[in-house]
Amino acid sequence: MVKKRSLLRRIGFVLIILIIVSFSVFPFVQMLSTSLKYQWDWGNPSLIPTQINLEAYKELLNIGQDEKNLPESIKMLLDESPELTKAQKKAIIDKYKDTGSVFPFMTFLRNSMGFALTASFISLIIAILGAYSFSRLAYPGRAVMQRGVLFVYMLGGVVLLIPLYKLFVNMGMLVTESGTFASLIIIYMVQTLPVSLYMLGNYFRTIPFSIEEAAMIEGASRFSTIWRIIVPLSFSAIVTVFVYSFMIAWNEYLFASVFLRGWDSLQTLPIGLRQLFLSKNAIWDRIMAASMLTAIPVIAMFMLIQKNLVGGLSEGGVKE
């Protein structure tokens, strides 16, 4: 009797875990499945594609697109005219290929990488100095600063969007391409700095001061102890903060959608994906493949730092 009850409990427990996991993961499985299906297969509720279709990925990543859009007559012309040099042939093919102009996924990817890497790198450097100041140096006004930084959490994007937009317009930053790039980088830094300061500050406090003291007795300056001792010792925390900042910038939609208006060459992945969805050639397999390709770098990085991130989050550095 007792055994039977515990078996039932066990089955119930496994069932609960299965429900939790499928609730969390189902949209991702759906995404992967649809990105690999042919159009005639979309309505099929089964998650396993009847036939695998990699076309969407190939098109987005511009793999093997050379011949696809080439009209038959041109293909024949190319085959029958050996007098054309390789360069000439390539020029003709290039004219027809260019799926990039339909949906320039690679451009979006590059821009997103550019914004996210630049913003998180600069913000990391500033945060290392700031966090050192928070955790190691005593000075009047420190507590106020630490709390003031937290205040950023209270403000939603939309509340800041109007004044910041007007501000950057007034400064004439949005007139040039590089100015627009810089403006958005600064905005991403504002969003990532508080998190970075907190996570790093908390980590620095766990490093025993005696190590630094020893170095300073040997004659090292404060700056060189930061670079020679603190940075190497907190390498894992630094990677974590970098990835976390990267993710914030990579995911950002609101500010990018307003600031990048009129700068097609700077558009990031979130903007591009929404454009693709709203455009006439919105095709589910391409949208899902693009979604997968947007999610994969972030998920991969997350897996890399998972352990540290979980610790860092629960120690108070959070931003959504």
Partner: peptide, 16 residues
């Protein structure tokens, strides 16, 4: 696996 929804970019899950 449970953390995936929190980690993935909004834009990438919204169309799913």
């Amino acid at each position: 696996l449970i953390l995936l929804p929190y980690v993935a970019p909004v834009i990438s899950v919204v169309y799913s």
